[in-house]
Design a binder for these strands. Structure first.
Lengths: 146, 146
DNA sequence: GTGCCACCTCAAGTCAGCTTGAGGTCAAGT
DNA sequence: ACTTGACCTCAAGCTGACTTGAGGTGGCAC
């Protein structure tokens, strides 16, 4: 079996060596063994890391990903969890789209001052009612970059 | 003019007093004056804070919001910036929707192991090609909660 | 006039997900 | 034999948006 040096894994996944060591420390991946001090990985780890990157992009935290089971397990994710996260993502996607519409409206609005725009003012009031506050109460979700 | 205590502002916006002080420190808002040690705010600040909450939800960082101009200015946002951010939000929204579709497919996929699913494997390969890596090169964008 | 309590300041802590730095190891090429 | 450079460990640092805590102040009701 073709064993990979951490540098090879880095090249195949685009992840930094320090990130890989960090993932190992967090229990997301493991090395097949060592050659001297150096970690040696099986090629499996590349798929595993692809999955991790994917899961992160879907908003799973490293902790959640680690909790999804031991590194080598064939079954990568619980189907129920996946389905429910898909629902959340759909919701977020919708909210973002609404924000985009609002922004675009405000950008194109004929009023010379946004505070004259009823739509804009309605949105601001909604914001103060908590409609856009971070979901702290809803059980702190991870964050994703825009 | 009806002046507001920090506690009143808290009640009207749902933001914590410490967050309000922090926003002031960062130059996002300012108090109209003091009564003794206590900050006094005009009612304007409530709208201003609604706008800030909105902008945060749209992915603007506090620094960007602060850069959009002095607190009391009527013109809240540059239309070009708004329009371009709207485009970014649309893109993010689309990617999230694609992720949701993929997750849902994987959750419902007849294959007993996701690694047997061609769609899933294609996605993992894409992830390793950097398609889902955080946009570090694209100029670090702020983060938003899922 | 006194007690309470909402407010104040300033420094330090929190969270995730890494990165950076100092100081060390080791295998291979010249 | 020696250098190079890729790797190692461990601790500390970074970012953003706040929160928390200790210790202090002062306006208002009684």
């Amino acid at each position: 079996m073709n064993l990979l040096d951490i540098g090879d894994v880095r090249a195949r996944t685009g992840l930094s060596a320090s990130a890989l060591r960090y993932y190992e420390e967090r229990g997301l991946i493991e090395a097949a063994g060592r050659r001297g001090l150096r970690r040696l990985y099986t090629e499996d780890v590349v798929d595993r890391l692809g999955l991790i990157t994917l899961a992160k992009a879907a908003g799973f935290s490293l902790e959640e990903i680690a909790a999804l089971g031991p590194p080598q397990k064939g079954e990568p994710l619980d189907r129920d969890v996946m389905a429910s996260r898909a629902g959340e993502l759909r919701g977020l996607s919708k909210r973002l789209l609404a924000m985009a519409d609002a922004l675009e409206h405000a950008a194109a609005c004929p009023e010379e001052n946004h505070w004259q725009c009823a739509k804009f003012c309605r949105l601001v009031k909604l914001a103060n009612r908590g409609a856009f506050h971070p979901p702290a109460a809803t059980g702190a979700r991870p964050r994703m970059s825009v």
